[in-house]
Design a binder for these strands. Structure first.
Lengths: 197, 197
DNA sequence: GTATTGTGTAAGCGTGTACTTACGTTACCC
DNA sequence: GGGTAACGTAAGTACACGCTTACACAATAC
């Protein structure tokens, strides 16, 4: 009998490194050779863990999604008094925005969306993010009517937009840390309270 | 004496095609061969018009910026009664959002921002867009105080975020046309009126 | 006409890249 | 200890890509 298969453990071990590489370099510039270098293994070892480069990218997206939502879930469970879940999420994002490179991964993927696999992975992740935020908003507003839920959905997209533009502004050196914080926290709260109709 | 130089005319003729290619395919996937194919010329002709592929991309960015702002300027000059410039811009963008592929070009460039040339081109364009919108907001609100201008800046970023997330939502098939219209027009107007403090 | 120089065609060059193959070594279970 | 299959190393393959070169042709000014 041979030794036990450790592929899945190895995958879990390497996925954070892979995700960081894709976030830093984008999809095309992240060569398999570069991935192997950062992971300190040979290329063919990566190809034993994933069928091709695309699968590595999809794994990276799913990893970042999981880490982000786990982090958010933890944040929501630690119930502080005096602030709703939605408010706490906004404060957290205002402070720690973009640390995981989520948006950079999205930008990298958006140039590859005619590939159905990448398109679907991105769509699933982005869609789940949006629904998560929309639910927090509806809870915060305590409005479960049909119109209220619809409104929470639209507002959720606007808040996702805040995070996205904050990421771009940081990337291009156009919005400094204080500006980003103000953008996400202040405008975020404004959107959260008001009803956009 | 030789025949007159027509390089700049040729550049102007080909730039729209080049821009469309980069918007559709992203930076890396837009090969010089593909550019030549779409332009119906040989590759070396492109290299007589621009020093390298990067320059073609930068030219595409500048072209899309110019077309967009020209279009907006025209929109602002045709003064309809009963709606401020800012409102008309929002309505226009809600209807025709993303037609020029501006956001796709930005996403393409954002994966190449460690290249200083691309970074600077993107920064300049995005920054000018933001200032343009911020000015419209300040005018609309008729508040030229320091705090008012600062607020208009933050709001302008939020509105740029609306456009960006609408583009992503469209790209991923997550927000349909009606939803995008509602997002840009309704939330846009909400941001425009309210003061986010 | 002719010299001069822009314009178009075709081929190719060096490098980078996704992915593979071949093979030796190691750790496990019986 | 021995059979087995996971694990690691190294080299290689086929192709695509950015960019260049060589050269024939065309149009203009004199």
């Amino acid at each position: 009998m041979p030794r036990p298969d450790q592929t899945s453990e190895k995958r879990e071990q390497l996925v954070p490194i892979v995700a960081r590489a894709f976030a830093e370099l984008g999809y095309r510039r992240t060569t398999t050779a570069e991935l192997a270098r950062r992971c300190e293994v040979r290329e063919n070892i990566l190809y034993r863990l994933w069928p091709d480069k695309k699968a590595m990218f999809v794994a990276a997206i799913e990893y970042v999604y999981q880490v982000s939502t786990q982090l958010w879930q933890k944040l929501l469970q630690s119930d502080e008094p005096g602030a709703s879940s939605a408010e706490r999420l906004l404060d957290y994002e205002a402070k720690h925005h973009g640390e995981l490179g989520l948006h950079r991964l999205i930008f990298a993927g958006l140039s590859e969306t005619d590939d159905p696999v990448i398109h679907d992975a991105l769509q699933a992740m982005y869609g789940r993010f949006h629904r998560f935020i929309a639910r927090q908003i509806a809870d915060h507003r305590d409005d479960t009517s049909a119109a209220g839920r619809k409104d929470a959905e639209v507002t959720a997209w606007a808040i996702v937009g805040l995070g996205t533009v904050a990421a771009i502004g940081r990337e291009l050196g156009l919005i400094k840390a204080t500006g980003r914080k103000r953008l996400v926290a202040d405008v975020g709260k404004f959107l959260l309270e008001g009803k956009a109709r």
